[in-house]
Design a protein around this nucleic acid. Structure first.
Length: 198
DNA sequence: CACCTGATTGCCT
DNA sequence: GGCAATCAGGTGA
């Protein structure tokens, strides 16, 4: 081994499993960026699963377009899209290449570079509480769409301790199709994911 | 080509 | 709680 790997093997292939399972597995993992030389990092505490062609709420439900092309890449690929023409949202591609399943990162707790994130957000709190806010705090934009979370500008790190996390499941937010699927997952007890959602 | 709809957020009344 | 910002894709004429 130890040759340059094409695909990052996150925690023993966790990202290759079903997206609904992977969305729970990545709770507690870290996402970091070093744009401008400043390290900023959060712990993932809330996710949503979007399952490729099977899922009416997925961007990939109606097939490949220029926007969702990154979803069809290898597991561990970063998919970034613009939401409502205003914000950026970051996803972790899972499953197998071509499956187009991805985990939306909805909320993170800042653990490094808090000051830098406060500058980027122009506020002191609620720095990464929401998919658009999280990308703003980490300075993730469409420029990083399609890059590898293993060796790209945006890095994903499996959690070290495998202590069980108390996971609460519920319906996904902001969608109108397949609203009955309880594919939103919140890690309780890590703190920071407790703010009201209207 | 025109119109509608979002995997959202923050500011306004 | 209401609603504007802002644009790519989906849909249908």
């Amino acid at each position: 081994m130890s040759r340059l790997l094409e695909v990052a093997d996150f925690g023993g292939g966790c990202l290759s499993m079903d997206v609904v399972e992977a969305a729970q597995q990545v709770l507690g993992w870290h996402v970091s960026t070093t744009f401008g030389g400043d390290l900023t990092e959060v712990v993932i505490v809330e996710t949503e699963a979007y399952r490729g062609a099977d899922d009416p709420a997925s961007h990939a439900y109606r097939g490949r377009t220029s926007r969702n092309a990154a979803m069809y890449g290898e597991p561990g690929t970063l998919y970034v899209y613009r939401s409502y023409g205003v914000h950026w949202c970051a996803n972790i591609v899972t499953g197998s290449a071509g499956e187009a399943s991805a985990v939306l990162i909805r909320c993170g707790v800042p653990v490094a570079g808090v000051e830098r994130m406060q500058q980027r957000r122009d506020r002191m709190d609620r720095l990464a509480d929401g998919p658009g806010r999280l990308c703003a705090a980490l300075a993730i934009t469409g420029d990083s769409d399609g890059t590898s979370l293993g060796h790209g500008p945006v890095r994903l790190t499996p959690k070290r301790a495998s202590e069980p996390i108390d996971i609460e499941a519920g319906p996904r937010i902001g969608i109108t199709r397949a609203v009955d699927r309880p594919w939103r997952f919140v890690a309780r007890g890590i703190d920071g994911s407790s703010l009201a959602r209207t």
